Amino acid sequence: MRAWVGYGGTFDPIHCGHIAVAGAVRDALDVTVHLLPAADPPHKDSTHADASQRLRMVELAVAGERGLRADARELSRSAPSYSIDTLAEVRAEVGPACPTAWVIGADSLAQLHRWHRWHALFELAHVIAVGRPGFGLDVDGLARVDTELADTIRRRLQPLDRLLAAPCGGLAVLPMSPPRPESSTEIRRRIAAHESWMSMVPPPVAAYIVRHRLYARPDPA
């Protein structure tokens, strides 16, 4: 295995932006990218389609896409599923020498210091931060969010193409120009409001949403 690369999220629903991000990472590193839908969180209103539906939409979205794969491992846990737990499981599977990376959005990078055991992530994997509209990837901007986060990023920042030279510990950015505009929240809003939305998701996902009448109610305020 050249490397193991994971891209987690609620994928509620998965959309064309998610696929574009996963494809950009795949192409930049010549790897397979695993898309991992998160388990249902403890609070029922936090997701709108259930875990099995979100997994099925991911499977439909990646079907026929080279180097993209649905990974259901987070859905088998009864306890809250943290990225650190997923990466520990992956590391046990691939061994200590296999380069491993976790893909996040720029919005998540700005909140990384709030993640469960966030420092330990780098002991298990690299982090790849991908551009999102309205969120910068520059370290100076992140210093205004949290100085410890910015210092950690400065120490670990390296070019994307160098990540696979080590098993873990680095951080690289992938700007995406322009950043993908799709948003699961906006898609759900449009569906509930009977506005145009189908072009924002892969066609098989759109058909699944229509067939199962997902997201017909507005999100709770």
Rank of each mutant, 00 (worst) to 15 (best):
R132Q: 05
S81C: 10
L149P: 12
G95F: 06
V127Q: 08
P159F: 03
A120N: 07
L112M: 15
R2K: 14
G17E: 12
E186Q: 15
E65Q: 15
R66Y: 00
G170S: 06
P159M: 04
V103L: 02
W115R: 11
A51E: 05
G131P: 09
R213V: 05
G6A: 15
A72L: 01
R54E: 05
Q158D: 04
D140C: 01
S177C: 05
G169T: 10
R180K: 02
H126S: 05
A221G: 08
F11D: 12
V62L: 08
R180C: 11
L160D: 08
E123V: 00
E186W: 04
H34P: 00
H15Q: 05
W102R: 02
G131T: 10
G8K: 03
H212V: 01
S199M: 14
I153L: 15
G105T: 06
R155V: 12
K44W: 02
A72E: 15
V145H: 10
V205Q: 07
T147Y: 00
L36N: 00
L35Y: 13
D71F: 09
G17H: 13
T86W: 09
T100H: 05
G136W: 01
K44G: 02
T10I: 05
E195L: 13
V130G: 08
R188V: 06
S183D: 10
V94Y: 02
G141V: 03
G67W: 05
I209Y: 09
A101C: 02
A28R: 13
R66M: 02
L149C: 11
H15A: 07
R189T: 12
L87M: 13
H212L: 14
Q53N: 04
H113M: 05
F11I: 14
S177A: 13
P203C: 06
R213W: 01
L87C: 04
H18F: 14
E74G: 02
A192Y: 10
R162F: 01
P96R: 09
H15K: 14
R189G: 09
Y7L: 12
R69S: 09
R54Q: 07
R144G: 15
P218M: 04
A172I: 07
D219L: 12
H15D: 14
V31G: 13
M57P: 12
E89Q: 06
S177F: 04
H18Y: 13
L36Y: 04
M176G: 01
C168T: 06
L163F: 11
R114F: 04
L164T: 14
A92T: 11
S52R: 12
L137F: 08
F135L: 00
I209R: 03
R213T: 07
D146T: 09
M200Y: 15
H48K: 06
A28Q: 05
A207F: 02
D219A: 14
P133R: 08
G95S: 06
S52T: 07
L68K: 03
R217M: 05
L29A: 12
R77H: 09
R69F: 02
